[in-house]
Design a protein around this nucleic acid. Structure first.
Length: 247
DNA sequence: AGCCTTTGACCAGCG
DNA sequence: TCGCTGGTCAAAGGC
């Protein structure tokens, strides 16, 4: 919990954030987490390009529950009792990756809660067999990545309201953050750039280790924020044309 | 052609 | 044991 909270305490006004805010204004995609998240790691030029794409399809798009640098496949959706909104269930599409996540989203498309379960056995942002929009953006991936090498745990990321942190097992390590949705948007902008080191220092395994172990061959190309961003940009842009969706 | 989402059915845990 | 609930499966259809 503390870890997650710490994640969201990064500067709101960084150069990246400023650029992204401009992006939102230019494209009328405001409070669009996907747009912001996707464009976080790119130059504003690309930001505009992407945002236009979204604008064509929806005014409120937040693909696949969250943009966390991993690729997710939705395998179920259910309206859970006690919850206002339907809950979507996602699996990491990475082969042999056991990580799952639950996403609750309000009717207007805002994420109200994300709960991660398990630990990725691969580094994030590597092009999967088939990328989707969700695989290309950044924001909360480290939430679950902090569990790499650990037990299957649920890591909760919450938006807009306070909820109990999901902790089915007393042994599970959980973390959560409760922030306003619009605030979280801004926070996501900076997450990748400003908090990687901060988070890594708070987690058992630094990403450099992660990137060079389980899937070294495939992961190598994704190391480093710059190369990572470029790879994701090109790859994601191409595939987003096909997978413009939202929940 | 391959991967995706959707969605109803099914299963397991719990009181 | 039964009913409720959350989580997962799998078929169907879309992109």
């Amino acid at each position: 919990m503390q870890i997650a909270r710490d994640h969201f305490e990064f500067p709101v006004e960084s150069p990246k954030v400023t650029a992204l805010k401009n992006c939102s204004l230019e494209t009328n995609v405001q409070q669009n987490m996907s747009c912001i998240g996707l464009t976080n790691i790119h130059e504003s030029g690309n930001c505009t390009r992407r945002a236009n794409q979204y604008e064509q399809t929806s005014n409120n798009i937040t693909p696949n529950g969250s943009d966390d640098g991993y690729t997710w496949r939705k395998y179920g959706q259910k309206h859970v009792k006690g919850s206002e909104f339907p809950r979507s269930y996602y699996k990491c599409t990475r082969q042999n990756c056991p990580v799952k996540k639950k996403v609750e989203r309000s009717p207007d498309g805002q994420i109200t809660e994300i709960v991660y379960k398990g630990a990725h056995n691969h580094h994030k942002s590597q092009p999967p067999r088939r990328a989707t929009m969700s695989s290309t953006a950044y924001g909360f991936g480290e939430m679950s990545e902090g569990n790499i090498g650990g037990s299957n745990s649920w890591t909760s990321v919450q938006f807009g309201r306070n909820k109990d942190v999901r902790a089915p097992s007393g042994l599970d390590r959980t973390s959560s953050a409760s922030v306003l949705t619009d605030v979280s948007d801004s926070l996501m902008l900076n997450y990748q750039n400003t908090n990687m080191n901060a988070f890594e220092s708070a987690t058992p395994e630094p990403s450099s280790t992660l990137a060079s172990r389980d899937d070294e061959d495939e992961d190598r190309a994704t190391e480093g924020s710059t190369s990572l961003g470029d790879d994701v940009d090109d790859y994601a842009f191409d595939h987003k044309r096909r997978y413009l969706f939202f929940i």
